[in-house]
């Protein structure tokens, strides 16, 4: 059984973990409405919390394609929940690159897995893209849509075309750190229990 085709079991695993990641993302996303700085801090929050299911997911990956499919699913879900189509290609791209990196290590070498998780986490930044690319109309829309000017100003102080680079780097760094955190948690709970 060493063929490289994905089986039904793999697809089900992908589905389960995508649902888990989405729940984490959604829980964090709700916080973002309190203050725009929290929106910007997603790049720290989601990689750290999301890394726990992700690291468990990485232990289940043996074949190429699982991460890519996951990113496609995330892109679809993000579109449905109203994040826009601008981010979708970037989400899939980051998933594909992350998949390629992890494949190089045979999905076993932790160093490459950590980097791959960092790259994968860049999908979070893809959600900022509508804010950056269409800044002017987005702002106008928000104010006319009833958001307060205070919220908008803070949002654009936190996220604009200058800070997006910083956010991307932060996202990657915390993705890598998150990989270590997630690995520790997985080892603490799952390896001892003999699940992995």
């Amino acid at each position: 059984m060493n063929d490289n085709k994905l089986k039904a079991k793999d697809f089900i695993t992908i589905g389960i973990f995508t649902a888990l990641i989405f729940v984490v993302e959604f829980a964090c996303g709700m916080l973002g409405f309190i203050h725009p700085y929290i929106v910007a801090s997603f790049v720290v929050l989601i990689p750290l919390v999301g890394s726990i299911p992700m690291m468990l997911f990485y232990t289940k990956i043996e074949k190429f394609g699982m991460l890519t499919i996951m990113s496609v699913l995330i892109a679809i879900i993000m579109f449905i929940t109203g994040m826009g189509w601008l981010g979708a290609p970037l989400i899939i791209l980051s998933g594909l690159i992350a998949d390629l990196i992890a494949k190089k290590g045979g999905y076993k070498r932790f160093k490459l897995t950590a980097i791959s998780h960092g790259v994968f986490c860049l999908w979070i930044c893809a959600n900022y893209f509508p804010v950056v690319v269409t800044a002017e109309s987005y702002r106008k829309g928000l104010i006319e849509g009833g958001y307060s000017a205070e919220y908008c100003d803070a949002l654009f102080r936190a996220i604009n075309s200058k800070t997006i680079a910083v956010l991307l780097i932060l996202c990657f760094v915390f993705g890598v750190i998150g990989a270590f955190v997630g690995k520790a948690v997985v080892r603490k709970h799952f390896e001892k229990a003999g699940i992995v």
Partner: peptide, 13 residues
């Protein structure tokens, strides 16, 4: 691949 995974996500929420 996509349809099975998506069905699982739907069923899982």
């Amino acid at each position: 691949g996509i349809s099975i995974s998506l069905a699982v996500v739907m069923r899982f929420f």
